Computed example of a mutant assay.
Amino acid sequence: MTNRTTSRRNFLKGGTAAATGIVFCSCGLLERAHAQGAPRALPVVVNGKKVKTIDVHAHCHFREAGALLGADAAAVQLPPVRGAAEAFIEIDKRLKAMDAQAVDMEVLSINPFWYGRDRDLAAQIVKLQNEKLAELCASKPDRFAAFASLTLQAPDLAAQELETAVKKQGLKGAAIGGMVAGVEFSDPKFYPVWSKAEELGVPLFIHPQGVAELSKRLSGNGWLGNTIGNPLETTIALSHLIFEGTLDRFPGLKIIAAHGGGFLPSYADRSDHACMVGPAGCNADIKLKKKPSEYLKQLYFDSLIFSPQAIRHLAAQVGPAQIVLGSDYPYPWQMNPVDHIFDCDSLSDDERVAVLGGTAAKLFNMAT
């Protein structure tokens, strides 16, 4: 049976309980509180064992990097969405937010805004950001890790940046968009980057930027450019990596897909039938080593899909061991990311531990 209790630091001190006349039966009280909607707090405990919770999907910005864009800085780094200002991290404020979310560690990333810039400017932005990320993580190594930024429009440079970030700056991999200036990640020009990531054994975190080509159809009410466009871009990016044979070429490549992998895990089995039904739309020279849907079991997916039912479906499709915790903080998509992992009754205790932080710790070679 799952013990879903958590404890609050310094919850009872000295004679506080006696002085107030309150008697606490901690396990039952906290269990009832969670059942009534109270969020969990640190430390998180599963079946009597403390778990290190690792949020792999958390964002930040650095004003110094944006300043390199001149007049464009504000539009890039302060979009009109809730939480944008908190992306400029004030450490004490961010730590309080993490504590409230029951998150021990955030793996920070910066959404690419430099892919359309010239090589030299993009390289300056990336260099500054990686240095700032390394400095921030070194200041609180128990609470922060980070994905490097890469100048992916210049793959030769990006491969060098990744090696420097991992070997010299202590960063844990790299955050990338969904494509680069209209070029899919399956394009051979990116092979040097994927090869370097495979060699270093570090993950790449795919975070979409939306599908600009559909801007007209996605206009109107509902912020469809994000609501539909972001998960759609991830779906397209992963599908190209599968169908173009990129994942066969780099079988050791570790990819984490944001937002539960977009729409792909919800309809992956359709991919297994496409070339049988419409062979004219498939390249007979590309012979995949397994069914398209089976590649999902070698990818990783964050848990930012909002409900225990969605987690149950994703786990059934890709396997619980392929899911890692994600919140998108400071953007308020999911302010209690730990809770719906506990609320997913199809997960065993061991599977909960893996999703909450165990799998991420292995991916990033961290101690738990």
Results as ranks from 00 to 15, higher is better:
Glu161Met: 05
Ala175Leu: 15
Ser239Asn: 10
Asp104Asn: 15
Pro279Lys: 07
Asn111Val: 15
Ala367Cys: 08
Tyr331Leu: 14
Asp328Leu: 05
Val23Asn: 09
Leu150Val: 03
Leu136Arg: 02
Ala258Phe: 02
Ala159His: 06
Asp156Arg: 13
Glu163Phe: 02
Asp104Val: 06
Tyr191Ser: 10
Pro292Phe: 11
Asp328Ala: 06
Ala85Gln: 14
Glu198Asp: 03
Thr20Ala: 15
Met179His: 14
Lys93Ser: 15
Val355Lys: 03
Val56Trp: 01
Ala138Val: 01
Met98Lys: 07
Asp248Met: 03
Gly222Lys: 05
Asp339Lys: 09
Asp92Tyr: 03
Asp272Ala: 08
Lys132Ile: 00
Leu29Glu: 09
Ala321Val: 05
Ser7Cys: 02
Leu150Trp: 03
Arg352His: 06
Glu64Lys: 12
Ile323Ser: 07
Gly83Lys: 08
Ala360Ile: 08
His61Asn: 14
Lys290Asp: 01
Ala33Gln: 14
Arg352Tyr: 06
Ile242Pro: 03
Glu135Pro: 00
Met179Gln: 14
Thr5Glu: 12
Leu347His: 04
Tyr300Gln: 11
Ser7Arg: 14
Arg217Cys: 06
Ala65Gly: 14
Lys291Ile: 00
Ser109Ala: 14
Asp104Arg: 06
Ile242Phe: 03
Phe11Asp: 10
Lys127His: 11
Arg9Lys: 13
Ile54Asn: 09
Asn130Leu: 02
Phe185Trp: 09
Asn10Leu: 13
Val46Tyr: 04
Ala360Glu: 08
Val277Asn: 03
Val193Cys: 04
Asp118Phe: 03
Pro155Leu: 06
Lys291Pro: 00
Ala84Thr: 08
Phe205Gly: 04
Gly260Val: 06
Cys344Gly: 07
Thr2Ser: 08
Ala360Ser: 14
Pro188Ile: 04
Gln101Ser: 14
Gly319Ala: 08
His59Pro: 05
Gly48Lys: 03
Glu213His: 09
Pro251Arg: 11
Ser239Cys: 10
Glu135Asp: 12
Ile125Ser: 01
Leu162Lys: 07
Ile305Thr: 10
Ala148Ile: 08
Phe113Ala: 13
Leu200Asn: 03
Ser303Arg: 07
Lys52Gln: 13
Ala181Val: 13
Ala321Cys: 07
Lys50Met: 12
Glu106Trp: 02
Glu213Phe: 10
Ala257Phe: 02
Met1Ala: 12
Ser149Glu: 01
Arg4Ala: 11
Leu171Arg: 07
Asp142Asn: 13
Ser307Pro: 05
Gln124Cys: 05
Gln160Phe: 00
Ala145Val: 00
Leu232Pro: 01
Glu294Gln: 15
Glu233Tyr: 12
Phe147Trp: 13
Leu108Tyr: 06
Asn111Lys: 06
Ala174Gly: 05
Ala38Arg: 14
Leu224Thr: 10
Ala18Arg: 11
Ser348His: 09
Pro279Arg: 08
Ala237Met: 14
Lys52Thr: 11
Pro231Met: 02
Glu351Cys: 07
Lys189Gly: 00
Thr151Asn: 15
Leu288Ala: 09
Val56Ser: 06
Lys172Cys: 12
Asp349Ala: 15
Glu351Met: 08
Arg4Val: 09
Leu232Ser: 04
Asn221Cys: 01
Lys140Glu: 14
